[in-house]
Amino acid sequence: MTLPASQLQGDDSLSALIDGELDDDTAQRLLRRLGTDAHERDRFAQYCAIGDALRGLPDGDPGFTARVMAALEHEATVLAPLRRQRDRRPALWLAAATVAAISWGLWHSDPRQPLPSPPLASAPMLVPAVDATAYVAAHQDFAQAVMAMPEMQFTRVSLNGDGR
């Protein structure tokens, strides 16, 4: 179910955006606002982090957490979004609409289409080291380093579409 803009205000609209419950026009309008309003962007990052925390999800992207934590440091009050009671169906269209809107509205110099990546589930389970020495050595031709092999840590992950 998608909701028109008239039924949404403030906090509701961000929450509905994350849930994929906005109609296309409203979603695109909100995404453009996120691109220009640092305060709204910070709130969006907080909502994402709070949602993950409530569901007990691990931090799959260190950069994401860092950005959120940086935003939190500047916020005196954290508002937790109310959980909607009705059934929510995954809306994959939102991923495409999200990136399309950003690409169209914010990346004028690059008309690329969205990155249609399926979600990645991270399993924080250490696995035996992959022998990456040869790959790192070959990559050195392009990397900045003229250094020794870095110490690496490996985890097993689940990837939608594996084995295609």
């Binding site: 955006l17 994350i18 849930d19 994929g20 995404l31 996120l34 969006f44 990052a45 909502y47 994402c48 949602g51 993950d52 569901r55 007990g56 999800l57 691990p58 799959g60 992207d61 994401f64 950005r67 929510r88 995954p90 809306a91 994959l92 939102l94 991923a95 999200t98 990136v99 950003i102 969205p114 990155l115 990546s117 399926p118 979600p119 589930a121 991270s122 399993a123 924080p124 689940s158």
Partner: peptide, 18 residues
């Protein structure tokens, strides 16, 4: 941890937008 079908799109939206 495994992302469920319900939570994965939400998380993906967050990551892509940010």
């Amino acid at each position: 941890f495994v992302l469920s079908a319900r939570t994965a799109p939400r998380r993906f939206t967050c990551l892509v937008v940010l």
